[in-house]
Design a protein around this nucleic acid. Sequence first.
DNA 1: ATATAATATAAGTTTCGCTAATGCCATGAA
DNA 2: TTCATGGCATTAGCGAAACTTATATTATAT
Lengths: 291, 291
Amino acid sequence: MNLQTLKIFCDLVELKNFSRTAELHGISQSAVSQQLAQLEMSHKIQLINRRKRPIELTAAGQVFYQASKDILDRYNQVSSELATLKQSSTRIHLAAIFSIGMHTLQPYIQKFMSIYPDVNLSVEYYDAKDIYEKLLRGIIDIGVVAVPKRDRNIESYPFENEPLVLVCSPSHPLAHESQVDIHHLQGEKFIAFDEGVPTRKHIDEILNRYQVTVRTAMEFDNTETIKRAVEINSGISILPAPTLRAELANGTLKAVEFSNESFFRPTGIIVRKDKTRSKAGQYLIELLRKE
Amino acid sequence: MNLQTLKIFCDLVELKNFSRTAELHGISQSAVSQQLAQLEMSHKIQLINRRKRPIELTAAGQVFYQASKDILDRYNQVSSELATLKQSSTRIHLAAIFSIGMHTLQPYIQKFMSIYPDVNLSVEYYDAKDIYEKLLRGIIDIGVVAVPKRDRNIESYPFENEPLVLVCSPSHPLAHESQVDIHHLQGEKFIAFDEGVPTRKHIDEILNRYQVTVRTAMEFDNTETIKRAVEINSGISILPAPTLRAELANGTLKAVEFSNESFFRPTGIIVRKDKTRSKAGQYLIELLRKE
DNA sequence: ATATAATATAAGTTTCGCTAATGCCATGAA
DNA sequence: TTCATGGCATTAGCGAAACTTATATTATAT
């Protein structure tokens, strides 16, 4: 039983003419005849009296016509309900931590929007803790965080590895070096991330590996405040290079690479494992992830 | 959109398992997967979350599940309504005039019942006027009458031609002839059909053709009463031979053929032109009609 | 990490519905 | 009544769609 057949039956009842009904549906008169025959065959009862011209409904036909109408109405209703749901499901919520700025995501977003121009993409910024929580609660669809942590319900894919550099005020002695050995940080006043920030742990591990101890002068939960503190020479810090663009350009800060090796802060895309993704969402994830 | 697909979707939702759903419908697991994919494709929205095991409905899926249920319910409802209508439509009402006895129809009815054993066939007897009226009102489906009259709304087909014979009491002078010239009826006391009975007109025409005048002693609307009148020698009559079987067998009446020619009373099957006929009804008509 | 159970995908086959051509039937005009 | 005409049914052949089998992929538990 096909809904299309019911539609054809209804139109046939209303038009009282096989050929015109066929034309309306873009099929042959024969097809309409066969569909009706099949309908009658499957119920083993005549629906239309062909011994009269124009054709007329039998009692069974009238009953079936009403039912067909009801069924088609219900189907059209659910179709439009789904269409509405689809609209809302094509809103993708992406959230990134503060230190992964718009300038990092911009090229990806531009590329994405050019392919899915109708998708409503929202980009917001929270701290890492909020991103994990909102992701699990289903409020956001994709998160971009630093040093992604493993979680049973979260799938993570690597994103960009951001070079970590030494940051200091232009008046600081190390400001004029082109490279610096990490051991020179020994005993320096240091502006660090709060304990809760994943990047803090990551940097601590690097310092530990080289057995360097710094004097933690201040702790902040975001790069902006750290940069302000370094600007007024309250200490030095280690930050991801992409976060320093503006300050390096206008000379309020100096960045120095490490001579020992290139340090990186890994960033990653995180999504809920169990959540279904729209085609667009899937594409955005594939665009962002790097294998 | 196929109703079968909706049924499969509902079962899938309830069983939460593709393979078992497939088994339930007697198809392969792959087919279920493909049908669901097609369903989602046509609405461009995901209905089932396969990233979870067991599978679970998406919001859209829940909406669609309810609609599918509604649609299938409505369809089942109309199906059973049609089944009820079918039951009543497979009752065929056949009506014959009194003088066409069970013994004439019996072989046809037996043959018919052997082919359509489930059909509820009712055979009733009325006078010709009632048969025409009930046929037009749709109370009966097939009529068997003598000398069928033409009518715009009635289709008639020839049935058996019944030989017309002279009937008289065994004590009547003509009773011992093997054949009789119709002219010998001149001036005889005659037991006739009522004016309204078609056979009356038919017999009158035959007598007129041979310019024979009889003395109409009595008029009755049925053969039985005529036979009783002839038995007590109230007069002679002309009747269809098949109506005399019993009386000829037990010797209460004598029948004599005419020497001039074989006279016949044509009988016919009548049906309403505009009425749809079931397969069984059509078959019964074809069984009865003689071309 | 790996095994297992479950779903998706791919290729080949069958089934089903469509078209085109033609036959049959109902209706109205001559 | 008969014939012409418009309209529905029927048939054969073909092409698209759905099914099956086999295999790949994915999710979950151990």
